[in-house]
Design a protein around this nucleic acid. Structure first.
Lengths: 209, 209, 209, 209
DNA sequence: GATGAATGAGGTTTCATTCAT
DNA sequence: GATGAATGAAACCTCATTCAT
């Protein structure tokens, strides 16, 4: 029993180290992916940033594709968990969407979402894996659609526009190009950008009578 | 005189063939670029689709970068010319923007615009060429900004939102993802999609009181 | 007969034009060869300098190798003819060799000789053609050997040194590197260089007691 | 301690293997370079001769240029070290130069020296690398010049001939063409060739008195 | 005869992946 | 388990040579 306990303990320790390393690899991969794009992300550089050998990366992820897919899945999951902490059923649908929008622009999620959404390489990656997107992304889309439907049911949102179109337009608000041009290059406050985009989305650009 | 005429005619014929071939190469490049993204677009595949040898492509474009840049420039120029035919000064700013939006979704311009706007590889390409974008793209952005300013001056558009944000949001409406998901996968009419997106942009998703 | 004469005349004219063009192609090839070396000498550039189409070069020379070989042959022949004008039997062997040396450094022959003599590409070229050198080069070597033998017979030259070694050393004096470093870079007079080298060759570097 | 020892040993072994492989690659590169010249030296062929894959060569040398430059540097360094072992200050300048000459013809250094000195491609290579020659070559030239100056100071060498010309002529004695024609093709002893050439250099071809 | 567009072999270089240590 | 040297497919680009016009 002693022995068994020790072993279990040892394995747990090893397992923890293993998970920690996996986390570090994912973090490095995300960093390089954002900096260089999919093709210029090399296993060599990821391994170097983590401080392990190239082969070690392959002990955790069976291919570059796997690793990059895991980056997305991990981020979406973290993002979904973060949403759960701030969104409650008692908020109005509009407030819920505004919160999601703000949260997206806060972290660096917007970067990854856009990477995923607009990069042909990554699309092909997930299509080759017989799935349009990583599962958590679909969960996020479903959630936004559900909120939009609830808003429509309450009469908050325009009922003549298909929910899917509304959802598409919602996700379009997240453009890394806007982010880079307005926030990074022109030093606009993130919150201001989010407010403006939210206003356009909910009220349009037309001058209120 | 006869001879001169004949020569001119011959040169015209050759020149026509040359231009036709160049057009075919550009079309193939665009196709592959859209399917595979910048990095997975190989000169070999472009040549194979046109049915010529690799070297032939280099007779028309001195490098892969040159070829891809030409794809964008050619498309934007065509698009700008098309706009000139349908947009007049007498139209309201809103009508002008609605027309631009519709035209963008009609052709396949939306694909390229989005490729350019959101692909890190292509951004790097144009930055390396000492220009943020191909000149015609900047012309399009300027044009949209001018229309938005005119609309603001007339009191048509919300004056509290910065024009740059409005322009960013406008171009965000052009999402190849929306196009693919709604028009191609779900068989929505392009015109319907354009109408919905235009309505969201101009009036928001909120239910009119 | 009239007709025949006319034809002959026409053919002669055409033939002259043909020869003139061949001369121009050889001159251009020599120029580019010296500037760029064998590999970076392209048929394209030669044709462009002459002002004809690439295909035209192939009407005169069946391959790049043929063309380059012709450059050497033409030069050696010209050089041998030039020697015939200034070297007479009545000159002493030493005077004859001094004259050859001076003439070699005068024209640009030294450049070509060294190109031929020290460039692996060109060696392979002639070896592939089953000949160590273009025939006129061998004629030049024979001539120098004959002069050295005559000098030995007269007791002018050291009889303990094999003539072949003496010939080798003689041709070694022609170094484009010396030429470039001393004449071009350090502005030494060609005649001075020739005098110094001749003195070393005939009298050695050792201080005459 | 055991472990530490083992590790050191292991690293030493690996390092030895690495160096051995690098040596083999350099040797193969030198071989091909000498046979085919710079342009026709292909990484493919070098790799094939060593029996490794193309990519392996790039683990040791980051480019073809780097590899070829390393061939020269390695040879010159080896040569300079060899000279240090046989040349002493107490030898007369003439004896020192005779020793250098003999040593050059012994190894295969003469081949590489001449390759470097007379091949336009390689000159361009080193010029592009912002250096006329690999540093050790310049060290050799300086050394010969210093010896010649010392000989002049002692009154051993002719003081009317510029040292630079004497140095040029000295290096001209090293002709791979002489070597091939006389030693390889005609089976002359290297020592005999060296003696003859040295005698010509120091005493000239003219019959003494 | 003259042209020059087209060809395609061949060269350098990168990098995901494997596997012996 | 961890390593990193080795692999080799695949990409871009050049240029001697051919051949239809």
């Amino acid at each position: 029993m002693e022995i068994s306990t020790t072993r279990t303990h040892t394995q747990t320790l090893k397992e923890k180290q293993r998970q920690e390393r996996e986390r570090l690899i994912l973090a490095a991969a995300e960093e390089v992916l954002y900096e260089n794009g999919y093709h210029d992300t090399s296993i060599d550089e990821i391994a170097a940033r983590v401080g392990v050998a190239k082969g070690t990366v392959y002990l955790h992820f069976s291919s570059k594709e796997d690793l990059i897919a895991a980056v997305f899945t991990a981020n979406f999951e973290r993002f979904l968990r973060a949403l759960d902490e701030v969104i409650t059923e008692t908020m109005t649908p509009r407030a819920q969407l505004e919160t999601i929008l703000a949260r997206m622009y806060e972290g660096y999620y917007v970067r990854l979402i856009q990477l995923l959404y607009n990069n042909a390489d990554l699309k092909k990656l997930f299509q080759a894996r017989k799935q349009q997107h990583p599962p958590p992304w679909d969960a996020l889309v479903s959630r936004v659609i559900a909120i939009l439907e609830a808003g429509k049911a309450r009469g908050d949102f325009d009922q003549h526009t298909p929910t899917k179109v509304m959802a598409s337009a919602f996700f379009c608000l997240l453009s890394p190009t806007s982010y880079e041009r307005l926030v990074i290059a022109e030093h606009m406050e993130v919150q201001a950008l989010v407010d403006y985009l939210g206003r356009i989305y909910f009220d349009g650009v037309t001058n209120a009578k």
